[in-house]
Design a protein around this nucleic acid. Structure first.
Length: 464
RNA sequence: UCCCCAGUAGCUCAGUUGGCAGAGCAAGUGGCUGUUAACCACUGGGUCCGCGGUUCGAGUCCGUGCUGGGGAGCCA
């Protein structure tokens, strides 16, 4: 089918983005898209057509009492149309080019019950019509940025020799240690089946992380990353949590915690500048209407080194501050949201990497430091969003790892394959998880995670 | 899961001390020869979230449930 010539007499379809960037007038132009507004004058009418290729609409002018004009005045906001005509310089303000319609055909009508109007809607309302919200300027822009950012992630790792791997979504390991898991079963409603009689012969779950699998591939291919969906059944009702989200998890052999922190910082900075460079119009919409401090925030991320401080230093800084915290900062306790916000927004005023956390508050696979109290963990915290990356150098010493598994009451048999990687040619390695939606919140200023995912899954919500 | 706030026209909201249900936008109709969320005029539009209670009378007060939002915990 590639390069097949269009049927004789009809022009190939062009996208609005290309037409708005035209270098000169064009004859025989064909556009297909959705009508955003119809402005009917006496004897002529303006249409604004959007086809998703860019934020801006193409202005179509339908003149004359017959043909295009007759059709134009019957069109309503939301309908789909095809328009053919010629692209000409626009005498009006606001656009360089406009399409003088020679023929307008209605493809799909849109009755007045169409819920989207030519005005701003609240995010809450748009969430109730998540199937239609991509037709708004804001969500169109968001999902063009999301697509571009995904590509930027792949390019970033490809440029650095990381191999893209896909780890299973279905897992049998019930103690990955990152929160509640969704159980998976083929049993019928109301039926109670023992796990050993179920599809996999044991209890199965949706993955909460591809990390343990990714480690196996890092210890073979040198450096790998995953980029896929992740599931958490935590009954978590906040603007920063979803039950299904996308996570990027790089894992590199022969890399220590410093390499890990450098990679994370470089990635966050790369993504921030990518958004500004590759999606300027779409990002500008967010800078103007969603978060007025967005440009400043992104500049801050791009142009400054991230502050690095140990967990111990962070706790000391919190204890020395005049600010009254609801939770007293104390060595050995996890940093609370209010603590993270103080560190990034007040104390450092820029992204911060906190590392070397107490072993007691971190999972078994993190590498024990020589002090015997802390592990080589690191979190990248950004102002307003909080934790965007969480990672560590992994415990590569078999005896230490076995001891930690035992200490935390986990089953060594369950992890036989994981332990094998330390038995056979073990090597220092490290990696992290980065929440893709949180990155999108960072580059757009959108404050609710439900508005950077196509169809968000949260407790009590699986509509669409 | 806990704390706080909200739910009134298609949307965004106002509604005074408990006393006839309101505005803007949208929609419909008409007008307008270059508009830019066009503009101007007119018209239609209500389960005041559900249930129960107090009262002569409840959008308004009380109880309860549901839904949504903000914050917390947990985390990416």
């Amino acid at each position: 089918m590639a390069n097949q010539a269009p049927p004789s007499g009809s022009a190939p379809r062009l996208r609005v983005a290309a037409l708005l960037n035209a270098s000169g007038p064009m004859e025989n132009v064909l556009v297909k898209g959705w009508v955003r507004t119809v402005r009917d004058q006496k004897g002529f009418a303006f249409l604004e057509i959007n086809d998703g290729s860019c934020l801006k609409n193409l202005q179509v002018i339908a003149e004359g009492n017959a043909g295009p004009y007759e059709t134009a005045v019957t069109l309503t906001t939301g309908c789909s149309v095809q328009v053919s005509g010629r692209l000409a310089a626009s005498p009006g303000k606001g656009q360089d080019w406009e399409l003088k319609a020679e023929e307008i055909l209605l493809i799909g009508a849109c009755p007045e019950s169409f819920p989207l109007q030519k005005k701003r809607h609240s995010d809450e309302f748009l969430r109730t019509i998540a199937h239609l919200r991509p037709r708004t300027n804001k969500f169109g822009a968001l999902f063009r940025i999301r697509s571009s950012m995904a590509l930027a992630v792949h390019n970033f790792f490809a440029d650095r020799g990381f191999v893209y791997i896909q780890t299973p979504i279905i897992t049998g390991s019930d103690c990955e240690g990152a929160g509640e898991m969704f159980t998976l079963t083929t049993q019928a409603k109301g039926e109670t089946l023992a796990p050993e009689k179920d599809f996999f012969g044991k209890q199965a779950y949706l993955t909460v992380s591809g990390q343990l699998d990714a480690e196996m591939y890092a210890l073979a291919l040198g450096a790998v990353y995953t980029f896929g969906p992740t599931f958490r059944a935590e009954n978590s009702n906040t603007s920063r949590h979803a039950a299904e989200f996308w996570m990027i998890e790089p894992e590199a052999a022969f890399a220590d915690l410093n390499d890990n922190m450098a990679l994370g910082e470089e990635l966050v900075r790369h993504l921030a500048s990518h958004a500004l460079e590759k999606c300027p119009q779409d990002v500008d919409l967010f800078a103007r209407f969603v978060d007025k401090t967005l440009s400043q925030t992104l500049d801050n991320i791009i142009n400054n080194d991230f502050v690095r401080m140990t967990y111990t230093e962070a706790v000391e800084a919190l204890q020395k501050s005049d600010k009254k915290f609801q939770y007293q900062p104390m060595w050995g306790k996890d940093l609370q949201t209010e603590h993270e916000r103080y560190i990034t927004e007040v104390y450092c005023k820029k992204p911060v990497i906190v590392f070397d956390y107490p072993a007691s508050i971190k999972p078994f696979y993190m590498r024990m430091n020589p002090d015997g109290k802390t592990v080589a963990a690191m979190d990248v915290l950004v102002p307003r969003i909080g934790e965007i990356i969480g990672g560590s150098q992994r415990e590569e010493r078999l005896d230490m790892l076995e001891a930690r598994i035992k200490e935390m009451g986990l089953s060594e048999e369950e992890y036989w394959w994981y332990l094998d990687s330390r038995k056979f040619g073990t090597a220092p390695h490290s990696g992290f998880g980065m929440g893709f939606e949180r990155v999108l919140m960072m580059v757009t200023g959108v404050s609710n995670i439900r508005d950077v995912i196509s169809f968000p899954r949260t407790p009590g919500n699986v509509e669409f």
